[in-house]
C-alpha cells in the first residue's frame, strides 16, 4: 500500500536530495539492513571462513615455519586419536546438562513463587537481574574466594549444618558441579524472568475454570500451566544451552580447566590449544567442532519448538 503512495510523494517534492530519498524508498527493503549485513559478513562470516581454512593447516604460530596444508588431518587426529578432546566433549555436555536442568527447575519454581501481586515486585525482579548482569570475571574471582577450602566462607557455612569441608575446585569429582553452581547462580534468574514474562501471557480462563472444577494446585500446574508455558521453557532451555556450551570466562578464571584437565571443556581446550601452545590449525578444528555441537543441539531444540507451535 505504502509503495503505491510513494511515487506521488516523490513527485510533489523536487531536488537531488529527493531523488536520493526516493531511491531509498524504492530500495528500502535491502538498503536498511545492508550496513548490518556488510558488518556481519566482515566481522563474523569472513573470520569463520578463515577459521575453516586454518583448520586444514598445521601450524605453530610461535615457530618460523610456514603453515602446511594437511586437509582434514586435524579432524582425523581430533576425533580419531585425541582422548583429551573426547573427554572434553563429555565434560562440556555434563556441565551443560547439569547446569541447565537445575536452572530450569529452580528457575521455574521461583517464577511460580513470584508470579503474583507482590509489593516491590520491580525491586525483586531487578535484584534478580544482578547476577546475570554483573561482570562474570569479577564474580568468578569472588567465587574462587568463597570456594577456598581453608579460608572460604562456603565451607564455613556448610560446617554449620554439619557438612565436612570440601575441596571444591581442586576435587576431580566436585569441580564441574562447583562450576555449575556458579552458572546456576548467574543464570537461574534469567530463566525466572523469562518464565515470568511467559506466565504473564498465559490466559487466565483455563486456570479459573479448573479452579471452579475443584482441581488441586498441583493438577493446575501440571495439566494447564506447564503445557501452556512449554514454548517459553523451550526457548529458555535453548538460550541457556547455547550459552552454557560456550561458557568460558567463569571456568577460565576459576580453574583454567584444572585440576589436571578435570574442567577443561571444549571451549577451554580450543583456547588453550590456540593461545598457550599456538597450535593454530588444530585449535581452529576444535573451535569448529564446538560450533557443530552448538548448532546440532540448537537445531534439535528449534525443531522441538516448531512442533509445538
Amino acid at each position: 500500500m505504502s509503495v503505491a503512495e510513494k511515487p506521488v510523494a516523490a513527485q510533489v517534492s523536487r531536488g537531488p536530495t529527493d531523488a536520493v530519498l526516493s531511491f531509498i524508498d524504492r530500495h528500502a527493503q535491502w538498503l536498511f539492513p545492508a550496513p548490518a549485513v556488510i558488518m556481519l559478513l566482515l566481522v563474523m562470516v569472513f573470520p569463520s571462513l578463515y577459521n575453516i581454512y586454518m583448520s586444514m593447516q598445521t601450524w605453530f604460530a610461535t615457530s618460523t615455519a610456514e603453515p602446511q596444508f594437511v586437509g582434514l588431518q586435524n579432524f582425523a587426529d581430533l576425533f580419531g586419536k585425541d582422548e583429551n578432546f573426547r573427554d572434553s566433549i563429555w565434560r562440556t555436555i555434563y556441565f551443560t546438562a547439569l547446569a541447565v536442568v537445575l536452572e530450569l527447575v529452580i528457575g521455574l519454581a521461583i517464577a511460580l513463587l513470584l508470579n503474583r501481586e507482590l509489593k516491590g515486585h520491580k525491586v525483586i525482579r531487578t535484584l534478580f537481574m544482578l547476577p546475570m548482569m554483573a561482570t562474570p570475571t569479577a564474580m568468578a574471582l569472588i567465587w574462587v574466594l568463597m570456594y577456598n577450602p581453608t579460608l572460604g566462607v562456603l565451607n564455613y557455612l556448610l560446617s554449620l549444618i554439619g557438612v565436612p569441608p570440601q575441596e571444591w575446585l581442586s576435587n576431580l569429582a566436585l569441580v564441574i558441579p562447583a562450576l555449575a553452581v556458579v552458572d546456576i547462580w548467574q543464570y537461574t534468574p534469567f530463566v525466572t524472568l523469562l518464565l515470568l514474562a511467559g506466565l504473564a501471557t498465559i490466559p487466565v480462563e483455563p486456570v479459573e475454570s479448573a479452579k471452579i472444577d475443584g482441581a488441586s494446585a498441583w493438577q493446575i500446574l501440571w495439566h494447564i500451566t506447564l503445557p501452556l508455558l512449554r514454548p517459553t521453557i523451550v526457548v529458555a532451555a535453548l538460550f541457556r544451552i547455547i550459552d552454557t556450551l560456550k561458557t568460558f570466562d567463569t571456568i577460565y578464571v576459576m580453574t583454567q580447566g584444572g585440576p589436571g584437565r578435570a574442567s577443561q571443556t571444549i571451549n577451554l581446550f580450543a583456547f588453550q590449544t590456540a593461545f598457550e601452545y599456538f597450535h593454530i590449525g588444530y585449535a581452529a578444528a576444535v573451535s569448529l567442532s564446538l560450533i557443530a555441537l552448538v548448532f546440532m543441539v540448537s537445531g534439535v531444540l528449534i525443531r522441538l519448538r516448531r512442533q509445538e507451535l
Binding site: L40, Y50, A61, I242, K246, N267, L290
Partner: peptide
C-alpha cells in the same frame, strides 16, 4: 536475516577470536 542474526549469536567467540587474532 533474523535467523542469520540468531545464528551469529550461537557461534562461540573463540572461533572469531582466533582468526581475528591472526589477522
Amino acid at each position: 536475516l533474523a535467523i542469520a542474526i540468531l545464528t551469529s549469536r550461537m557461534v562461540p567467540w573463540i572461533s572469531f577470536l582466533l582468526p581475528w587474532y591472526l589477522l
